[in-house]
Structure formats: C-alpha cells, structure tokens
Amino acid sequence: NRLGIIYEIQGMKAVVLTSEGEFLIIRRRKDMKVGQQVSFENEDIYNV
C-alpha cells in the first residue's frame, strides 16, 4: 500500500500528494475528500 493526501478531485480521478513529494493521479473512490489521507495500490495509479 502507498499513502497520499488528496489534493484535488476531477471526475473519476483524484490527484494525491505522496510523502515523497510526488503528485499522482489515482482512481477515485466515492468516500474520498480533499485533504484526506488515503492508501492506494500501484494498480490504482493512472499512467500519464
């Protein structure tokens, strides 16, 4: 599992900021809110 803070939500995608200072786009889940810490898997990351 990886951890990140939700920075922005766009439709079915969420932008998270990881503890390494990396911004990633992941698959959104219904319970996500901006500012929330979430765990996610590598499979949830969109390749940009």
Rank of each mutant, 00 (worst) to 15 (best):
25 I>N: 06
26 I>V: 07
6 I>E: 00
24 L>V: 08
4 G>F: 02
28 R>G: 15
20 E>M: 05
20 E>H: 07
17 L>P: 00
30 K>L: 15
38 V>I: 06
21 G>E: 05
7 Y>D: 03
41 E>W: 04
12 M>S: 15
45 I>V: 06
48 V>C: 15
8 E>M: 11
2 R>I: 13
38 V>L: 05
40 F>V: 03
16 V>M: 03
16 V>L: 03
40 F>A: 03
3 L>D: 12
44 D>W: 02
5 I>R: 06
29 R>S: 09
4 G>V: 02
32 M>E: 03
23 F>T: 11
27 R>Q: 07
24 L>C: 06
3 L>T: 11
23 F>V: 13
28 R>Q: 14
20 E>R: 04
45 I>M: 03
12 M>E: 15
34 V>K: 13
12 M>L: 05
29 R>G: 11
40 F>H: 01
31 D>S: 14
39 S>C: 12
21 G>M: 05
36 Q>N: 11
32 M>I: 04
44 D>C: 09
21 G>L: 04
20 E>P: 03
4 G>A: 05
46 Y>V: 13
34 V>T: 05
22 E>H: 12
29 R>F: 05
5 I>A: 04
33 K>S: 05
18 T>S: 07
35 G>W: 03
24 L>P: 00
29 R>P: 10
36 Q>V: 11
25 I>F: 08
14 A>T: 05
48 V>S: 13
38 V>D: 00
21 G>D: 05
13 K>W: 13
22 E>K: 05
43 E>Y: 02
41 E>N: 10
3 L>P: 03
26 I>T: 01
5 I>Q: 05
19 S>M: 12
16 V>H: 00
6 I>D: 00
34 V>R: 04
14 A>S: 04
8 E>W: 14
29 R>Y: 14
19 S>N: 12
3 L>K: 09
23 F>H: 11
14 A>K: 00
26 I>D: 00
23 F>W: 15
46 Y>C: 15
8 E>P: 00
12 M>Y: 14
30 K>E: 15
38 V>P: 00
37 Q>L: 08
12 M>H: 15
20 E>G: 06
36 Q>E: 09
1 N>Q: 13
41 E>F: 07
8 E>K: 10
30 K>W: 10
45 I>R: 02
1 N>A: 09
2 R>Q: 07
19 S>G: 05
9 I>G: 00
44 D>N: 02
28 R>E: 04
42 N>T: 10
12 M>G: 14
47 N>V: 12
18 T>W: 04
42 N>M: 09
6 I>Y: 01
